[in-house]
């Protein structure tokens, strides 16, 4: 319980630091730490498979890819250039506030929605009652997998996973078409 609080706090700190840091490499590194902590948090919430994936993907592959991108671009965030001397400086100032407004609005909607949610870790939450128990009860006899997550992933919702692999494949082709210049064959 206490660990959860501390980790949540750390996660937020990392997020803020990563977003506000001018040095992009530092930002990426903090993002890696953010992912690790997030994965730790998820282990605490018993979602071992997700934590596993997040550690491998979030902290590993994403960081490496970000660094690779940095190595081919520019390491530091440029100072935001003044977009020309506007006739109405107050207008540009207000325009700067628009993203903040949008974010606040989104947050407000989320908070509004959250007010009616079941409490955190409520055993009687509807999410855990309708479909989920079936998987826990039936996956071993029906699929032979003792890891319920794998049973759902590969069997009950196997088609989603096919889609997921297609997404990965698509991403690969996207990067090929964007970055590869010379082709064999």
């Amino acid at each position: 319980m206490v660990i959860d609080f501390i980790l949540l706090f750390f996660v937020v700190v990392c997020a803020v630091a990563s977003v506000s840091m001018k040095d992009l490499l530092g930002s990426v590194m903090i993002l890696g730490a953010y992912s690790l902590l997030m994965a730790l948090l998820w282990t605490r919430y018993n979602s071992v498979d997700v934590a596993f994936t997040e550690a491998a993907v979030g902290a590993g592959i994403t960081t490496v890819l970000l660094i690779a991108a940095l190595s081919r671009t520019f390491r530091h965030e440029e100072d935001p250039e003044k977009p020309g001397q506007s006739i109405f400086p107050w207008l540009t100032r207000i325009a700067r506030l628009i993203p903040l407004g949008v974010v606040m609005l989104t947050g407000a909607v989320l908070i509004y929605g959250t007010l009616d949610m079941p409490n955190f870790s409520d055993p009687a939450a509807p999410a855990n009652l309708h479909v989920a128990p079936y998987y826990i009860e039936k996956s071993v006899p029906e699929t032979g997998s003792i890891n319920f997550v794998t049973a759902i992933l590969a069997s009950y919702r196997g088609y989603d996973t096919l889609g997921e692999v297609t997404v990965i494949f698509t991403a690969g082709i996207c990067v090929l078409i964007l970055l590869r210049r010379r082709f064999h064959g």
């Binding site: 929605g113 079941p118 509807p126 999410a127 009652l129």
Partner: peptide
């Protein structure tokens, strides 16, 4: 996610 949370189905 919000829908799943209150209904438990997809």
């Amino acid at each position: 996610g919000h829908l799943y949370m209150v209904t438990g189905t997809l």
